[in-house]
């Protein structure tokens, strides 16, 4: 039996007349890299915000790591918000100090290793970074925490194609010896394909398809091709 880390039962969230999550039923398996995929506005970011307790459901129930989303639970979740920025006055080194002091289970040694993989200079100030470098720093802040669940909302936004490939390779390498579940959204399905073990395609707040990436690839060629078929 597959162990689940997140369970959604009839999860519903409305903004005005629009359903962001519409009677969403979903079980997310533990220990895999899961892609929550779909076009803009299908409910991916809303789902993530509900998981970390930033947004509350109107109806239904969600359990994360066996509990309903709450503030204390975030000690065990690393979350990279969508369209986020990092604190502009900090250097990479200061950001890591912030991590040590305020982010539970932050591993500074791992952060330094990951920063090196990401080509980040420890003395570089965030205000002088490009959007891509800032995204890499935020990804590093999340990936350096010893937590069972990492949630990444568009982690590759603003990062150029070549760097994206490099980052994905680093993430695969990082994942190889760790018991962690990574939940991520991305529009770069083609490049992230190799990273994903499981894919969930959403549309209008509910699940279109959820299956092992391997099964989907066998049936449809690739996740990228499947995505094009689904959202044509």
């Amino acid at each position: 039996m597959i162990e689940t880390i997140i369970k959604c039962e009839h999860a519903t969230k409305k903004f005005g007349d629009r359903f962001a999550l519409n009677d969403l039923n979903l079980e997310i398996p533990k220990g895999k890299v899961i892609g929550i995929l779909g076009e803009n506005g299908v409910g991916k970011s809303t789902l993530f915000r509900v998981l970390v307790g930033l947004t509350r459901l109107d109806q239904g129930k969600i359990t994360v790591l066996g509990e309903q989303p709450n503030i204390k639970l975030n000690a065990n979740i690393a979350y990279l918000p969508d369209r986020a920025s990092w604190y502009q006055d900090q250097t990479v080194r200061k950001a890591f100090e912030f991590g040590v002091k305020l982010l539970p289970h932050f591993n500074i040694e791992r952060a330094k290793q990951f920063a090196s993989l990401m080509n980040l200079d420890l003395d570089m100030k965030v205000s002088s970074m490009s959007k891509g470098q800032e995204s890499r720093l935020m990804l590093t802040m999340c990936m350096s925490r010893n937590v069972p669940l990492i949630i990444l909302d568009e982690p590759f936004s603003g990062i150029d194609g070549t760097s994206r490939e490099h980052i994905i390779e680093s993430m695969i390498d990082y994942m190889s010896d760790r018991e962690v579940t990574i939940l991520m959204t991305t529009h770069e399905i083609y490049e992230a394909e190799g990273l994903l073990d499981y894919a969930i395609f959403l549309d209008k707040g509910h699940v279109l398809i959820a299956d092992e990436a391997e099964n989907l690839r066998r049936e449809h060629g690739s996740l990228h091709d499947l995505s094009r078929k689904l959202y044509r």
Binding site: V52, I71, P81, A84, S85, W86
Partner: peptide, 15 residues
């Protein structure tokens, strides 16, 4: 305004 609220509000400490 600076886009850091996501980090701030998901810190696992009481509001």
């Amino acid at each position: 305004k600076n886009g850091t609220y996501g980090w701030w509000l998901t810190l696992p400490y009481p509001r």
